[in-house]
Design a protein around this nucleic acid. Sequence first.
DNA 1: TCCGGTGAGTCTGATGAATGAACCTGCTTT
DNA 2: AAAGCAGGTTCATTCATCAGACTCACCGGA
Lengths: 183, 183
Amino acid sequence: MALGTDYELQDCALARALEVVGERWSLLIVRDAFYGVQRFNDFLTHLGIPRAVLTARLNALVAAGVLRKEPYQYAPLRHGYLLTEAGLELWAPLYLLSRWGGRHATPDGPRHLFAHAACGTDLDRAGACPRCGRFVPPGEVVIRPNPGRGGAPRTDPVSLALAGPHRLLEPLASAAPSTSHSA
Amino acid sequence: MALGTDYELQDCALARALEVVGERWSLLIVRDAFYGVQRFNDFLTHLGIPRAVLTARLNALVAAGVLRKEPYQYAPLRHGYLLTEAGLELWAPLYLLSRWGGRHATPDGPRHLFAHAACGTDLDRAGACPRCGRFVPPGEVVIRPNPGRGGAPRTDPVSLALAGPHRLLEPLASAAPSTSHSA
DNA sequence: TCCGGTGAGTCTGATGAATGAACCTGCTTT
DNA sequence: AAAGCAGGTTCATTCATCAGACTCACCGGA
């Protein structure tokens, strides 16, 4: 973490986790990765983060084993950032923190709702499906906008792709190069 | 958050949560509050945080409704910092993040273990008691050191009090003024 | 009344990160 | 040839953090 090595005195696994994922933008990057964001520019425009910081965070998350780089084209080499196994296991803490934020830090309630893809039931506070009675892994979760929220309309490709229901971890549409149609 | 107001563009409840609890030391302060730390100086020595930063964080957490100030003496007015209802609900995300850190960011495994006070069973990955089959609220959790860990011996009062089993939320022993007995 | 101690801070200068804008590279399309 | 795009790097400025000294109100003892 940016704390240098200050946390290393802490006895706690939480301090270790925060060294990996506790920096300013890190958890939001991981959240976007769950949403299906894979490319540098998509993270950039969706988060509004300075490029240099994004570079640093992505490299740190790769070094920590949360993300990995995967080439998606070779002509000019380009790669996306995907969640590793360890990264995928951040879903539960991330979801719980998000729920907490929706209850206690968001005046008008959450802007997104999460449901179990298989049965359409909204997840409970622990990230489980009340109907199926078990925890739902991120790949089986569908995120959709909360209809009760007006919200400022954002126009970056990621926000547009998330304007409708979307299954977590599936690459967002902006990944399509879209050769000559309504660019 | 220290990001100024940058996160406010984000659609997500997670961003809201991170504005409250995502700053550099905030979650460690909340963790210590679960451990039973209540006093300024105990946070200070246990975390090794600069005083000015601790002041800022405590005030921010109080303003956000995560902690509240409670006087424990009036002669010279002194107060401790206690978790509010909203703060108590951070237990689940905090525990999950800590577990994640123990699995993926701590080389020798976690330094603390958590058990259900009523039956002595260790909590599972979701913070539930496998025997009782339900989520265990923090007030019913006992933390104890992981015997498998040597670890550097720390000598601040909070670390000493946590050297043995301790029920979460119970004030740590350092709260005793101890007038003239084996200071 | 003077003296030292304690709890909970505030103030200050030095250091280090975050920010935003501009620039660079390799390749493709017009 | 010129422009565009993806994914960066470099730079000056601003902001947060750090460590340590200082403050303030009160207590308890001589």
